[in-house]
């Protein structure tokens, strides 16, 4: 599994990614994409919570 070696290697480069087999490249996109989407939406979630808190603090102070 070259894929795991490439990911395990902290300094993995675009070159090494491109030299992987097609299915390994596919796996890279699947894992990277799913983690990425969850991560960004997690940040959106925290953004909403943070804004909610600020909103409720403002209400209290009023």
């Amino acid at each position: 599994m070259k894929f795991l070696h490439v990911l395990a290697d902290a300094g993995f480069s675009a070159e090494s990614l491109r030299s992987m087999a097609l299915w390994e490249q596919g796996l890279f996109v699947v894992i990277g994409g799913l983690i990425g989407v969850f991560l960004v939406l997690l940040l959106f979630f925290f953004t909403i919570r943070l804004m909610e808190r600020l909103g409720s603090r403002k209400k209290k102070s009023e």
């Binding site: 994409g33 989407v37 969850f38 939406l41 997690l42 979630f45």
Partner: peptide, 19 residues
Amino acid sequence: PYMIFFGAAAQFGIFVTFF
């Protein structure tokens, strides 16, 4: 706000189909 995670989970098919 926690409903936002369904917006992520429902993208599962995109990546499975891609593969």
